[in-house]
Write a protein that binds this DNA or RNA. Structure first.
Lengths: 215, 215
DNA sequence: AGCACTATACCCCCAAAGTTGTATTTTTGT
DNA sequence: ACAAAAATACAACTTTGGGGGTATAGTGCT
């Protein structure tokens, strides 16, 4: 507890990174040792520097959320992870907290919440922003399609890849060409995706993907 | 140039507001006299306090962008406005700069860009983040679905109504029952919607609807 | 009164999506 | 090394979507 915690901060808004820097500089038992403005930089930093706590934004354009977290965890499993997000979808938060991360702080909250999160995980206690309950309007809207369930863990890399191409208005045969697959394989994947997520059709799939930031 | 500029900052992410505060505190010829975490607060502040420069985020949940700017301008026309945004849609930026605002700074850029913007408008010169050109990936991706055009104005009430039902995974015959229409009518509407928006299929439609907040 | 737009409705045809079922290979985790 | 999960591939069949037309009644604006 005597030497300062080594912190990495990652956010694709550099100006936010600058602000975060100043906020965290006010605390004396931590030290920012790395900054990243995208997922790739964060992974690089993890390979080179020992990190105690990573404060990351989920909505970065190169890595999609959970991919990044599991990548980081696989490099330095002991590192604590604080997710700083703009979204407050409670089903996402729950599954994240159970499996991967140590704190979830939304940006709607002030810096106080981030500091509390740091303090909390320092004692081994997971933290969720108290502000989240206040924003239930958003949450309820999303849960209508979420079925309140686990979702994303069920999807494989390949399936997510295909969802993204569907969202780009490609049909199954175009996707098969793009990925060097058989047309039948793509159809099988689509079938499995709809089944796993309990969705009725492509419209529902794209809606789901948007509400859950899969794209 | 002797007395400090009076600044208002507005952003719905309070933690960002905190960071911004610290960033701007490092400059000595300005002074933050008001903070707002939504559009309403910003308008209130404008009624009560004289503001020289307003630094605002466009994506706040109560006011939609241009509405807020014109509201503020109508209260204090002489006030300079810096928009701090996450989006870099060049068509929006152009129309904003011509008519309403004095600077457009994207959050992908660092604090340096914000400081440059402040300096620039101090001399009466409009400012746009130089980083914007670098992030053309995002822009292109969106324009492929936006067609860089007007879109929403083209859609009628009925069409938007139908889009919402499609997003709820209803098929044409279910929609026709729900709205007491003929199955053929619904099909016609769908056809017209895709044509107007120059989209290929339902996947593209739902994606478009999400990206443009039609739901 | 006239015109443009919207909403309504119908038809045909083909392509694509969705359903059900089977089956092999490859990758991954333990 | 073994088992589980994922990725691959195929077929037959039904339903839905999307493109091409055409047409008529209402609505709103000028």
């Amino acid at each position: 507890m005597n030497e300062p915690k080594k912190i990495l901060i990652a956010d694709d808004h550099k100006i936010f990174l600058d602000g975060l820097n100043l906020i965290l500089n006010e605390i004396n038992h931590i030290k920012i040792v790395a900054q990243a403005s995208n997922g790739k930089e964060a992974v690089e930093a993890f390979k080179n520097i020992e990190i105690d706590i990573a404060i990351i934004d989920l909505n970065m354009n190169d890595f999609s959320g959970i991919d990044l977290i599991s990548a980081l965890k696989s490099i330095q499993p002991k590192c604590k992870i604080i997710v700083l997000s703009m979204v407050d979808d409670s089903s996402i938060i729950k599954s994240l907290l159970n499996n991967y991360i140590d704190a979830y702080v939304i940006k709607y909250g002030g810096k106080q919440e981030l500091l509390e999160a740091l303090h909390s995980i320092d004692q081994g206690i997971p933290y969720i922003s108290p502000s989240i309950n206040l924003n239930q309007l958003e949450t309820e809207k999303k849960q209508s399609l979420n079925n309140g369930n686990i979702w994303i863990e069920k999807l494989t890399k390949r399936e997510i890849e295909i969802i993204k191409l569907i969202a780009l208005q490609m049909n199954s045969s175009q996707i098969s060409e793009k990925l060097f697959l058989s047309y039948y394989t793509v159809k099988t994947h689509r079938k499995n995706i709809l089944q796993k997520l309990e969705l009725k059709n492509t419209a529902g799939l794209i809606e789901f993907a948007n509400k859950n930031n899969l794209l």
